[in-house]
Amino acid sequence: MRKLITAVAAAVACLTAAPALAAGGAEHPKDVKYSFEGPFGRFDQAQLQRGFKVYQEVCASCHSTNLVAYRHLAMRNAPFWDENYPNPNESPYARTIAAAAQIPDIDSETGDAILRPGTVADRIPNPYPNEAAARGANGGALPPDLSVITKARHGGADYIYSLLIGYPNPPRGLTVPAGQYYNKYYAGDLSSYWAPAGVDPEEAHESVPKGGFLAMPPPLREGQVTFDDGTPSTVNNMARDVGAYLQWVTEPKLIERKQTGLAVIIYLTLFAGLVYASYRRIWRNVAH
């Protein structure tokens, strides 16, 4: 049996290794020790609340999270979960946050376009009325919806963190186009913008810096957000916390999933033991 398990495990390992393509020309994301990692991981609720604040005050002016409704913010394992309000629709936190938002709607009497205060059932509104407006305001680039962003990029929350802190001064010899910003962690190919002084252009391709250009200006500045729990709002802290928040946005059921998984695996292991014992007993007197 052990031989079988090893064989299966080896097959899986070989096969899953196959599609992993080289990451291209970007720096590998920095590893952040997030509390939600590993089979026993949990979200750190204070961190989620700080991350939410960064998101609301900074990212939400350009990005949407179309799949997130205000009531989600008060679900179990969410930033504003409170066990006194098991029904998230009754959560005063979700209600207060929703009421502060202005939601575009249609006046049911007159049919006019209006703005009304949000309710827990509303989804967090899109900062732009349409794609053209979003592109117009961002030099032609579209800020992507962030609802599933940590699943849509290699490196997940580590990548979000790295991207946000990854704007060094461009190395000398790199021409950054107007409206673009150099980022070490953003995948791209900089070879046609790279002409270091005193290096033969033929040789230059060997020293092309890692990273790429994107249309998002460095969004975070020291002290931009005031955290209610007194955490200093360094770029590093804000980037780390908004990374955790976006992990929750992407996978609100992450903790439930891991907890269920542990129970399932313990159950199946015991069940396997029991069935193996029956197997030994039934086959006891049969040569095979």
């Binding site: 049996m1 899986v12 899953t16 199946l268 292991t269 029956s278 039934i282």
Partner: peptide
């Protein structure tokens, strides 16, 4: 009983993917 045992062992491996690494076999794009 023998198949049953093997099925459960297989399901354990399956569960490791479903509950702890559900996107490992897929593509981020």
């Amino acid at each position: 009983v023998k198949d049953g045992f093997a099925i459960i062992v297989f399901l354990i491996m399956f569960s490791v993917f479903v509950f702890f690494n559900p996107n490992a076999l897929g593509h981020a794009d």
